[in-house]
């Protein structure tokens, strides 16, 4: 049984700037997230955790190393092909929700599917299903401004998973929420991973990282430690699918 790695970073470095102003954001990071697994990445500001996530999501390119999503190396793809991967395989959840204010909840969620060429009707149906999954089917026709922060973040999660994308990347998704609402968001991410997605959660809060199967500690662009279930154990539960 081969390991079902959804995301695999191999020896990734990212250098910003040149000469004396060079900043090494990541220094040779190797990191894998398997299907069915939620991995948290913890570290102080400047440790490289957000850079890691933007590279994993194809929003930024590494200086060296490879980034494979579902077996496809993002670094070898054309801009167009990479954008397509981002729409079909990768879901992104931000701290600031990043919903389009002029679109309803359902339209926000349907957008990536429509951009991907799915018929408007089917996209709407998928969006409704995704909103149902995150528990806010009844808010489908509301605009973001008429929703609470927790509700907006649920819409953002629905948008990240619509179309059965198997890699969900979350950058401080609970940062703007109170503790109880934040916990509901983590429950949702967790449920999505339990249902077979691979999740990567970047956070500086230990309480949130504790929802993950594994916690990776970053310092100065290097993984300094890792806790939690051995990824091999995680695999035995999910590999038989």
């Amino acid at each position: 049984m081969s390991a079902d790695a959804v995301l695999r970073l191999s020896d990734v470095t990212r250098v910003h700037g040149t000469g004396p102003h060079q900043v090494h954001a990541l220094r040779g990071i190797s990191f894998t997230a398997y299907a069915g697994e939620l991995v948290a990445v913890m570290g102080p500001s400047g440790s490289g955790k957000s850079t890691l996530l933007t590279i994993a999501g194809g929003l930024d390119q590494p200086t060296s190393g490879s980034v494979a999503v579902e077996g496809t190396d993002l670094t070898t793809l054309s801009l167009d092909a990479r954008a397509r991967m981002r729409r079909t395989s990768i879901g992104y959840v931000f701290q600031g929700f990043n919903l389009i204010p002029a679109l309803t909840a359902a339209e926000n969620v349907a957008l990536p599917r429509e951009l991907d060429g799915v018929s408007a009707r089917q996209a709407r149906a998928e969006a409704r299903k995704a909103l149902e999954e995150v528990g806010i089917a009844e808010l489908a026709d509301r605009f973001p401004d008429d929703m609470s922060g927790g509700q907006q973040q649920r819409v953002a999660i629905a948008r990240a998973v619509v179309g059965d994308r198997r890699l969900v990347l979350a950058d401080e998704p609970t940062g703007a929420l109170d503790t109880e609402t934040g916990e509901e968001i983590l429950r949702l991410l967790r449920a999505r991973c339990d249902a077979g997605a691979a999740g990567v959660l970047v956070t500086h809060e230990a309480r949130h990282a504790a929802w993950a199967d594994r916690v990776v500690f970053l310092r100065d662009g290097v993984v300094v430690d890792e806790t939690g279930a051995d990824p091999v154990d995680v695999l035995t539960d999910h590999a038989v699918r």
Binding site: R207, A210, V215, D225, T227
Partner: peptide, 12 residues
Amino acid sequence: RSATMAALQDYT
């Protein structure tokens, strides 16, 4: 930190 995080994961 690793040990405390492991405990925190158990509680969670």
